[in-house]
Write a protein that binds this DNA or RNA. Sequence first.
DNA 1: CAAATCCGTATCGCCATGCAATACGCTATC
DNA 2: GATAGCGTATTGCATGGCGATACGGATTTG
Lengths: 261, 261
Amino acid sequence: MTRDALLVQSVEKALRVLQAFDGGNRFLGLTEIAARCGVDKSAAQRFAHTLHLAGYLEKCPETRRYGLGKRLLEVTYNYLRSNPLIEAATPALIELRRFSGQHIKLSLFDDTSVIYAIRQQSEREYFAASLVGRRVPTFCAAGGRAILAELEPARAADIVARSDLAPLTPKTLVDPNLLLEEIAAVRRQGYAVAAEQVLLGEVVIGAAVIDAGGSPVAAVHIAGSLAEWTPEEYARKFAGPAIETAQALSRATVKRIREAS
Amino acid sequence: MTRDALLVQSVEKALRVLQAFDGGNRFLGLTEIAARCGVDKSAAQRFAHTLHLAGYLEKCPETRRYGLGKRLLEVTYNYLRSNPLIEAATPALIELRRFSGQHIKLSLFDDTSVIYAIRQQSEREYFAASLVGRRVPTFCAAGGRAILAELEPARAADIVARSDLAPLTPKTLVDPNLLLEEIAAVRRQGYAVAAEQVLLGEVVIGAAVIDAGGSPVAAVHIAGSLAEWTPEEYARKFAGPAIETAQALSRATVKRIREAS
DNA sequence: CAAATCCGTATCGCCATGCAATACGCTATC
DNA sequence: GATAGCGTATTGCATGGCGATACGGATTTG
């Protein structure tokens, strides 16, 4: 192994410490951090201390254990603010929610998963699980499938092949061949419909946002409840608006980049 | 200067690199990063490279410059998910928005500033400035003043004294003595009303959320437009709901902590 | 069109810096 | 009151990060 001369190993380990706080762990002690990150207790102590000074970790005064710090919200703020797609999408998604009354999300494409970057929940909000920053496998999210359909088939197949095809619900489609067929169907019709692929009782329409270079970068999601709609009805009613919004954002992205250059 | 033996300096510098992307800078080159962080170009190169490998920075292929990466959204997700106050607050704020039709926010107390952690925007208006993670000076945010009013007067005065009293709008109250009087008034009435203190045309009600130890940790904000309401009308209508929600969250926090122990 | 400038990239020898082992003090548990 | 386990603090050693430097390409300038 020829190690990367530019990689700063201490930084990498410190970031691993930050990532140890996944899965909803509120507080971790030094020993737990060390175990989770595969470093010894001394290292955990130094990194946690450093992250604490920077405000990225907070320390519970009684238990002396560490938890994530609110300063983390700041970097996400900077990210959201610096991203022109987010800026353009926010009003468009508000409009879409107002028009549809449904739960609206924008997800960003990140290889085998997509990440929710904006959400506009419906009045009735059944689904609390879609906080900003949530990662969902690309292969099963409606928006993810819409994105895969915009890639060259070989790349889409590669992503499916590299995905962990663990079902999120009993209904999640996990057979690679069926998935590729479904993606082909999405490619033909221009949008994806996914019923109970991520959450039971939920139906989602997904439409891809394309960047200036023609690659999909994000997806618009419209989500509702199967208690009120059949997937077919839902698609008839909301596929149009989803596609329209996604196309408007694709144009907005192109325009932005032109203006910047 | 007796330097902290537990502080890992490389990590601290790497975090400075992340923080260099504030103020809505989309992309920064190595030279700019180096200048902003007060490190030399070699260091900027190594840290940017390391953060890039971890997914916290992305690289624009053409310009070879760096921007914040979407993986940052993930740590915020972990933070939001691990915080019981956020969990309890989300449904309460949705309910509050449904009831009031106004723009609702939850801010977290962080010394001289507060950070928006949840927002529920109203149907009509859209204040782009209140993204999650936005930091606003405690002294001028309605919720910030509600929080200051719950502290011992000496601590509140200390925070005001250490604050950068730069006005955010022409109407922002910046005289320390007047601020302390205003905080005393807030203490008496149990909520804060702030008109055009952060944003022109905006009126905000703030009420503090108290933790199990009796200290304020967060605040509920209800925000609306001065085009529709006078501050007095707004307070008459929404101070009650704001206080109620804040108290419910205070109780929820106490309950949570009891359950955990 | 050539020269100059500035950028991102890659390399390398030195030594400060982070490493890991260890010892300490505290608190909870039995 | 003994034990176990935690977070904290210290220290000598060697390694990993430092920063100067050199390279190639792109863009700007005269």
